[in-house]
């Protein structure tokens, strides 16, 4: 017995065309990243002599790009390790504060019918869409007046402010997807709001919270503009993206820059794929309607 062919099954020609298209898309998406990764394993002189030889010969595999990128200047490196620590510090701080603020705000937006809720949600959406570059001028002036532009604290403040709207948007979607009955039961049982949030809501919403935290971390980890605006004068405070961009102006061999870029990319890619399913759901929750 043959299986009935679905009326939607495409013709073989269309099928081939589709796979060619997907293959080309894959090459375009991944090719450059692979190129950067392979070059980061080759000595600089080899890259300049044979730019078309992308695949490193076994004998010329060279990991010195990574070590000289990461090591401190005193050890003959370019000090990226220190910049990575700065980035980590700011990004982790941002995650903690931004997530705490957003859990509360998102829960209120998803569940509580309080007066002014429509306006608050509108303001948050408006800020999410508002040109951030316009606000950078007064933010810079305010933080400079407060003496915070030359420190990681100023950056931390800006990152929290920049990530709260998107974190609220994502977590609100996760909260809305939870069954409300459990919370109602807990309230009827006499649980206070903080207790209910901590021991009922958060445990079931945990995957969504973690996914949001990862997204916030990625934003802070990748951010470049405010780091440039605030910290460019103080080398010891550079974040990883700022550090690599600044080193590019100092005639640092491109293999070292690529090694640094790949090194700061790997944690982000790993985190993203770890949380991919929840992240995608949270980001695109508005699109399914």
């Amino acid at each position: 017995m043959t299986r009935r062919r679905s009326p939607l099954a495409p013709r073989p020609a269309a099928q081939v065309g589709r796979f060619v298209l997907i293959a080309v898309a894959l090459v375009i998406a991944i090719g450059p990243v692979l190129y950067g990764f392979l070059l980061s394993l080759r000595p600089y002189s080899a890259v300049v002599q044979n730019p078309l030889d992308v695949w490193p010969a076994l004998g010329e595999l060279d990991f010195s790009g990574y070590t000289s990128a990461m090591l401190d200047e005193s050890q003959g490196g370019f000090g990226l390790g220190r910049f990575v620590l700065n980035s980590l510090l700011v990004a982790l701080g941002t995650v903690v504060l931004s997530i705490v603020v957003s859990i509360l705000g998102a829960y209120a937006a998803a569940r509580l019918r309080y007066r002014g809720r429509g306006m608050v949600n509108g303001i948050i959406l408006g800020i999410y869409l508002f040109p951030g570059i316009v606000l950078s001028v007064p933010l810079f002036v305010l933080l400079a007046r407060a003496g915070l532009t030359g420190s990681l604290v100023g950056l931390f403040f800006v990152y929290v402010a920049a990530t709260v709207p998107v974190a609220i948007y994502m977590m609100r979607n996760y909260f809305l997807a939870l069954p409300e009955s459990v919370e109602e039961a807990a309230i009827i049982d006499g649980a206070s709001l903080p207790r209910m949030l901590r021991s009922v809501v958060l445990p079931i919403a945990l995957p969504g919270v973690v996914a949001t935290a990862i997204y916030v971390f990625m934003i802070a980890w990748n951010e470049y503009f405010y780091a440039l605006l605030f910290l460019v004068q103080d080398r010891s405070l550079w974040t990883a993206p700022l550090g690599i961009a600044q080193l590019a102006d100092f005639n640092v061999p491109v293999t070292v820059l690529l090694a640094g870029s790949i090194a700061i990319t790997i944690p982000v890619i790993l985190l993203f794929f770890l949380a991919q399913r929840y992240l995608v759901d949270g980001l695109t929750a508005g699109a399914e309607k």
Binding site: P32, G36, N222, Y224, P241, G260, S261, I264, T265, V268
Partner: peptide
């Protein structure tokens, strides 16, 4: 997902 600085360097 790639950090912007990595994409630019590449």
């Amino acid at each position: 997902v790639l950090p912007i600085i990595a994409a630019v360097t590449i």
